[in-house]
Amino acid sequence: MKKRVLVGMLVGALALGLVGCGQKKETKETNKDQFKVAMITSEGGLGDRSFNDSGNEGLKQAKEKLNVTTKVVEPGDVSEGETYLSQLAESGMDLVITLDLGHSDVLKKVAKKYPDTQFAIFNTAVEGSNVSSVLFKEQEGSFLAGALSALVTQDTSLEQVNDKKIISFIGGIDSPGINIFLSGFKEGASHIDPEIKVLSGYTNSFADPAKGKETALSQIGQGSDIVFQAAGATGDGVIQAAKQKNVFAIGVDSDQDGIAKGNVLTSVMKRVDNAVYGLVEDGMKKEYQTTYELGLKEKGVELSPMTYTKDLISEDYLKQIEGLREQIISGEIKVKDIRK
């Protein structure tokens, strides 16, 4: 009997809540003509201070400057990709962007089913008349980072630098998409000094900072004083290790210099924000390209402004790097793309 009363009270409370909400009815008027964009994050989700956050930044800008409706969703696991892609298409989105590589297979299927929706996927090429593949020339940014590292690791006047000519790289998974960073990094380093030794290691995860830190500490122990990481959230641990041992880390994807001020030499930024923004711009004009290949020239990749480190580094180095950048843009230097 008492229990029944309790349940009754709960039902009553809920009903009151319902009524309350009903009255407060939110008026989120959405203009039917407005361009609607949705973005699906990849493993790690928002808050990774990297890939996903950068994409979100671009979307925010598009919302402000281009007056579009935006939505960011974070699936729980990769098997939900199909549901998310199709539900977003069904809900009337004009452009659906997925940042998750794992969606490439299902995207092929889903895109065919919703020909009126434009889809975009990053870092991998997916065929389809209504699919845009956005690829970055990571090797170009990595080249600059490698060159800068080669210069800096020889400047023993810096407290972060030891006397060994060793730098290193940590990747998420030993795969072409990640190794492109390594190859560019190596090429840039040997462009400055062929004797520079580049260590490399993989953490087999993009979401394991502890593993990242462990791997970085081991490389630092072997004499590396600049650790370049391309490992998503795992990279956070790498930066923590650099801070702890007072050496340099190099960030990736977004401007990570601020994570450990003075210990992140620079970041190889993939301007996912620029790419997302560009996609929306093209979408409003209905001028999608099947493939976007974005390098230094297109401002798809670049080094961070080095807010906290540019005063430490000799100006001469920075000039050399700027020179290299221009050479790449002009085509004088061609950085190898191991994926091709």
């Binding site: 794992g102 991998t124 990640i178 087999n204």
Partner: peptide
């Protein structure tokens, strides 16, 4: 299994630790 999917059995060209279809 992650090792297996990352090295001996990884789908060529894939950036994820996954096997071929």
């Amino acid at each position: 299994t992650t090792y297996l999917a990352s090295y001996p059995f990884r789908a060529p060209g894939s950036s994820n630790a996954e096997t071929i279809n």
